[in-house]
Structures are given as C-alpha cells and as structure tokens.
Amino acid sequence: MMKYCAFLRGVNVKGTNMKMVEVCEVFRSAGLKDVVSVLASGNIIFSSDEKAEDLKIILEKSMSEYFNYEAFLFIKSQEEIKNLWNSNPFGKNENLHIYTFIGNNEIEKVLMNEFENSTKTENEEGKIINNIFYWQVPKGNTLDSTFGKILGRKNLKDQFTSRNINTFEKILKKIHT
C-alpha cells in the first residue's frame, strides 16, 4: 500500500462548496483506504495499491459525478510531498506567503514563463527547484500581483493547483499517523 495525498483544485471558491467529510466518503466509495482530510482546501490523504495516474482518472470522475462539477485533482506520493516541502528555496518571513504548485508534467516551465512576463510587486519572486515552481509574494498582495491574476485563467484550470508551503508540513505530520 502506498500513501498518497490528492490536491483538489478550486475547492470552496466561486460557489463550489464541499464538506471534507463528503469528499472523504467519495474517496472511500472509490475503494481507497485510510482516508483523511487536511484543512478545508481539499487535501485528502489515503492509501492505495493503484498507480497515481489511474487514481487521478477514477477520482476526478467520482468527484465530478458526486458534486456535479468538473473536478480536477493532482496526486502526489508521500515521498513527493516530502520533496515539495524540502525543496522550498525561500526562508520563513512573517510578511511573505510562499506557494507551491502541483500539476501536470512541465507545468513549472509554463508558470515560470508567465511569472517572468508579469509585473512584480516588491519581494515577489518565483523559482524552480527540482521541477517544482515556488512563488513568494507579500501577504495581502496575492491577488494584486499580475501573476496572481494569471492563475485563475480558464485555459490553465486543469493544469495545476497551488498550496501555501505550510500545508505540506501539516500533510506530512498527518500522513505518518
């Protein structure tokens, strides 16, 4: 059995309201074990013998049918999550948020290209480490930043989702239990 975490995109934003209890039920109905959620942003830890790419197809279909919306999610193994947490290039700073992007293969290049062409606020930075895109932005400026606006674009919606770096710490703590 492998331990995974599924990262749902667009949960509890723009009218897609879902209770994590129900999401966990959908995952259990799909045959997954040890299902538990972390935070309300749609991070579901579970165990399975299946491959991540097969799980993605099964779960997107189950979620879409149950909640009646177009579901997108990205699945990472426990090892990959450890890597997402450990590869963070930015230091802790009370005034800055750090976001990590999880998505399709090579999405980090697309994001870096968009970031390089965007207007930056002060202390806004983007870096790729181990094929992962990290974005540092001053608190309160997330939506003012040009790059922040790009993230909501329709043509990118099935490509990635993002999480605050601290989310991975919480997931790693819970995935071990």
Rank of each mutant, 00 (worst) to 15 (best):
V23R: 04
S48T: 13
N105P: 11
S62H: 05
G31D: 06
E122S: 09
M18S: 13
M63T: 00
E122A: 13
Y134G: 12
Q159D: 10
F160P: 08
G91A: 14
I81Q: 06
N83V: 13
V137D: 06
G91F: 09
N166R: 13
T142Y: 00
S64F: 01
A30E: 05
Q136S: 15
K174F: 04
S64R: 05
E22W: 06
N17Q: 09
L8N: 07
Y134R: 14
V137Q: 10
E122T: 10
T161N: 08
G148E: 00
Q136T: 09
V26D: 10
S29R: 14
N123G: 05
H176G: 08
F147I: 02
Q159P: 00
G10V: 03
V26C: 09
E94N: 11
R153T: 01
K61N: 08
M1K: 07
G91S: 14
N86F: 05
C5F: 08
M18V: 15
N12R: 03
I102Y: 06
N130W: 11
K51D: 06
I171D: 03
I129R: 13
E122G: 03
E94S: 14
N117K: 08
Y99T: 01
G10K: 02
S118Y: 01
K33S: 11
R163D: 10
F7L: 14
K76G: 02
F160S: 07
S77E: 11
L172V: 09
V26M: 10
K14I: 01
K51S: 10
K154A: 09
N93M: 03
F101E: 01
K19A: 14
V21A: 14
F168Q: 11
E80G: 09
L156Q: 01
G126D: 12
I81D: 07
T119D: 00
M63F: 13
D54R: 08
K127L: 13
K173C: 08
N123L: 13
D158N: 14
E124F: 06
G103Q: 05
A71V: 01
W135E: 03
I98F: 04
G31Q: 05
K139D: 02
A6H: 12
E25P: 00
R9T: 02
K127Y: 06
E22P: 07
N68W: 00
E108V: 02
C24L: 04
F115L: 07
A52Y: 05
A52I: 10
T177N: 13
Y69A: 04
E169V: 04
K154F: 08
F115M: 07
H176P: 00
I81P: 01
C24V: 04
K109F: 09
E50R: 10
V13C: 00
I132D: 14
E53S: 13
N131D: 15
I98G: 05
V38C: 10
S64Y: 06
I44Q: 02
Y99R: 12
V21Y: 10
S47M: 09
L84C: 03
M112Q: 11
V11C: 03
S41L: 09
V35H: 02
W135D: 01
Y66L: 01
K174T: 13
S47C: 13
N93F: 06
K19H: 11
Y4I: 11
C24F: 05
I175G: 07
T167C: 02
I98R: 13
S47L: 07
N155E: 12
L111I: 00
H176V: 09
W85Y: 14
D144Q: 01
D49H: 06
H97M: 06
L59Q: 05
S48I: 02
F67G: 10
